[in-house]
Amino acid sequence: MNTLRVERLEYYNLEPVSLKVGEEIVGLAGASGSGKTLFLRAIADLDPHGGKVFLNGDEQTDFPPPEWRNKVGFLPTESTWWFDKVGEHFEQVNEEWFNKLGFDRDVLDWQTDRLSSGEKQRLAFLRVLGIEPSALLLDEPTANIDSGNTKNVIDLVSAYHKQHHIPVIWVSHTIEQLRDIASRIFVIQDQKILPEK
């Protein structure tokens, strides 16, 4: 059973958080500035934090950091691209996934500085799936995407999730979107992460 377990995680201004995510999609909502992104950043070990994080029983600190971040795939709201061409950012290309999000193979030759924000976000999503993470942290993955592609992204997350049985944390500022996707929803309120009532 794949699990992502957070034990008394301390970060930002929140009270220590404990949370166990199994082979499910868990939603996290909260006002902007409440610490949703920082929660994901602490799990990905991008910020200093207290407490412990386990992936399938193995502790975060037992992994070399790059290996941990390879296993715990983090999709930020704003993606960044550092090479000239899209294809240089991909270690492997699953053409079926690309097609599902409306891309052909020639997207790999596109210049990264000419991508629209929606294209960037969809491609960043394909990029993080390409490293085959054992857990997924999605920070508002559909924020810049039109409604048609939003559905495609949701379908692809579900498909990947069903195929690989991995824990997924999906952060969104609209709780309505999470109701369709997540099996459980948590809300950040008054510096606490609590299950939605």
Partner: peptide, 20 residues
């Protein structure tokens, strides 16, 4: 910094992330 952290998120080492 977003580029550097973007690379870290993809499992790059600090050396790769800052090399350019």
């Amino acid at each position: 910094r977003t580029v550097i952290e973007g690379r870290l998120m993809m499992g790059h080492t600090w050396k790769q992330a800052v090399e350019t």
